[in-house]
Design a protein around this nucleic acid. Sequence first.
DNA 1: GTTTAATTCAAACATTTGTTTAATATTTGC
DNA 2: GCAAATATTAAACAAATGTTTGAATTAAAC
Lengths: 207, 207
Amino acid sequence: MAIDKKEHIINVAIELFSEKGFEGTSIRDLAAKAAVNVAMINYYFGSKENLFKAMVEYRATYIRERLEEITNNTKTTEIEKLDAIIEHYVYRFLTHHKYHRVIHQELLLEQREEIHDTIIKVFSKNKDIIHAIIEKGIKRKVFKKVDIAFTIVTIIGTINQATLSRSMCSIMMDEGKDFDLYTDETFRKRIVKHLKQVIHSHLLIEQ
Amino acid sequence: MAIDKKEHIINVAIELFSEKGFEGTSIRDLAAKAAVNVAMINYYFGSKENLFKAMVEYRATYIRERLEEITNNTKTTEIEKLDAIIEHYVYRFLTHHKYHRVIHQELLLEQREEIHDTIIKVFSKNKDIIHAIIEKGIKRKVFKKVDIAFTIVTIIGTINQATLSRSMCSIMMDEGKDFDLYTDETFRKRIVKHLKQVIHSHLLIEQ
DNA sequence: GTTTAATTCAAACATTTGTTTAATATTTGC
DNA sequence: GCAAATATTAAACAAATGTTTGAATTAAAC
């Protein structure tokens, strides 16, 4: 019962923080939208900042499992692994775009140290996994000797740029305001296709 | 005299908004850091939001001029134009990273409609310029038939990802906290080299 | 069914917020 | 050098902020 309510508050927090930012969202906004009393948030989480922490940790490592699954599959080549990673990242960023927007904002602001560190740690581990795959591809001479760090920057940066801002996306796609990128299947496939193409021609020695 | 002071306040605003966000920065913080009376900000700009507007417009079109210069140069090929654009963007994002961080944040939040529209319009025009160059390259059959919109997303996304967050960058580069990416020349050259490489192999038909 | 613990609530708390005021100081135009 | 406009200030304003309180309600334990 209590857990359900906590989860409900966290989900409302994701919604509001992603729209208005952490400082832009008041406890009263939050309580109203979650249909609970203002005092409940402090009762459950202790403080607004602790709610934020709980929110961040709520989904912190949910990408990792899939990344490790992909890495540990011995039947796939390096480029197939990267393809799978691209597909998974795009899918996750689109379905959980609000959560990722909050995380992204906090990463930029570097205000709340503890939260920032949590995000950094999660990201760092995921980076290492991708790094290892590209490194192996280079060693096996199926990949060119590229700048691995920036190759990852391009993958994540492209996905972030395409999914984080609705209006930015509308401009890019020359789409109207009614177009919902977060549920549009052809849009998702278009990012994936493009990004795979970029990474393939960037990495593969012969194509 | 008045203009100098206005400019000074705007520069302090860029500094603080980029660190703490718009809602996270109080007029009193701002006044203290700018060493002016709190009332001066409303005296000069009317309101906190108007200061924000003034700040956004302050440098709104400063990239455009160079973009048009690059386009209008009849002696360069399409790929040379793109190379010049990449160099310029990276340079500008690094030297004015605080301003760009503020703009980026506002683009994500979509809170203040008027400001958001200004940013969108500026960005949209710049996009059109780059779009036209790639389109011409495709027509002239020196470029592959790529997804133009997402190619621009990759360019801007890579630069954003590499320059917007200091800590994100530190992870990526495996550098310590003392490393200052915004002034490091070899870092700048490394982004440019990587991004040119990515775009070349993505676009050019024979290399 | 009573006692104990957990939950919910409206109200109050002390700060902080953006903004305005009205008095004072400074600069400008002549 | 004087009048009018501009700039600067400390103080006050009302509204909003995160948090706490203490009583009331509900659930759990025995």
